[in-house]
Simulated scan of single mutants.
Amino acid sequence: MIAADLQDGVNRLGDMIAAARVIVPFTGAGISTEAGIPDFRSPGGLWTRNRPIHFEEFVASQDARDEAWRRRFAMQETFAAARPGRGHRALASLYRAGKIPAVITQNIDNLHQESGFAADHVIELHGNTTYARCIGCGQRYELGWVQERFAADGAAPDCPACAEPVKTATVSFGQAMPENEMQRATELAQHCDLFIAIGSSLVVWPAAGFPLMARQAGARLVIINREPTDQDDVADLVVHQDIGEVLGPFVRN
């Protein structure tokens, strides 16, 4: 059912939240636009202006690695300045109240952690861009270290421990989805009674399968997104309104 207007959507969502025992949120880029993080897939977004660098290309080419890191450094001020929006804070409020065991996210911006979620309770399907890892041994590196090495050597660094490339801790095009996170997301989707998809176009698979999985397991499904999605017709509630306006009333300090 599509909400008639903002207030109708907020009221219906409130009733469903109150009745739910276990709520699992699934978040996409739309929840972070209020925080200043652009939606890379939208018209004019980064991915419409720059060809994505696939994982195999990153591994094989020093030039590709250099370009990937130049793009990341160009976005550093944007990511560093971002703060959790009303959507993040509302979910954190429900998390502190014991309604939400964990959040599944397609985002890479670390804003759920900054809003109050324990890191272990943020299931990052596409990784995290606020730090780096060696693709060989998995050693973690902070971005400052990468930037210093890049400036000193004029090239993206390799891992001092194993000599494999270092990349942001994100899942690139062509890179396998993280097995542990996919398994945890599956278990959450199958064992909740309310699943809320927030700010996702629900077109990127396999992540887009989790709302359907929850619905098939018996959960009620809510979709909050400014634009229609292909899954609107199977949802119990659809709210096509600004995410911050919809979730703002559920923020508790």
Results as ranks from 00 to 15, higher is better:
101 P>R: 04
74 A>C: 01
72 R>P: 00
95 Y>E: 04
63 D>K: 13
29 A>Y: 06
32 S>D: 07
23 I>D: 03
52 P>Q: 08
71 R>C: 03
87 G>W: 02
100 I>H: 07
70 R>H: 07
76 Q>K: 14
123 I>V: 13
32 S>W: 06
93 S>T: 01
78 T>P: 07
86 R>Q: 10
94 L>I: 07
119 A>M: 05
70 R>V: 08
120 D>Q: 14
28 G>N: 03
103 V>T: 09
47 W>V: 11
92 A>N: 03
23 I>S: 03
44 G>S: 11
18 A>Q: 15
82 A>G: 13
106 Q>T: 05
113 Q>A: 11
102 A>I: 06
122 V>W: 02
58 F>W: 10
89 R>H: 13
92 A>H: 03
100 I>P: 01
58 F>G: 01
23 I>K: 04
29 A>S: 11
93 S>I: 02
101 P>F: 06
107 N>W: 04
16 M>G: 15
28 G>Q: 06
110 N>S: 11
113 Q>F: 03
51 R>T: 15
72 R>Y: 03
53 I>R: 02
21 R>T: 13
31 I>V: 13
100 I>G: 01
80 A>Q: 14
42 S>A: 15
68 A>E: 09
24 V>E: 06
67 E>C: 12
18 A>T: 09
29 A>I: 10
30 G>Q: 01
104 I>N: 04
49 R>G: 11
16 M>D: 10
124 E>N: 08
99 K>Q: 07
21 R>F: 09
48 T>E: 13
49 R>V: 13
57 E>C: 06
17 I>G: 00
106 Q>G: 08
26 F>A: 02
40 F>K: 12
68 A>W: 06
112 H>D: 02
124 E>H: 07
119 A>R: 15
76 Q>M: 10
18 A>V: 13
77 E>V: 06
48 T>M: 12
72 R>A: 11
101 P>H: 06
67 E>F: 08
60 A>E: 10
106 Q>A: 11
103 V>M: 00
96 R>H: 15
121 H>D: 14
35 A>Y: 00
50 N>Q: 10
19 A>T: 11
83 R>T: 11
17 I>Q: 04
31 I>A: 05
96 R>D: 07
43 P>W: 10
65 R>E: 00
106 Q>H: 03
69 W>P: 00
106 Q>F: 07
99 K>R: 14
99 K>W: 02
67 E>L: 12
32 S>V: 07
92 A>W: 01
52 P>C: 04
114 E>R: 15
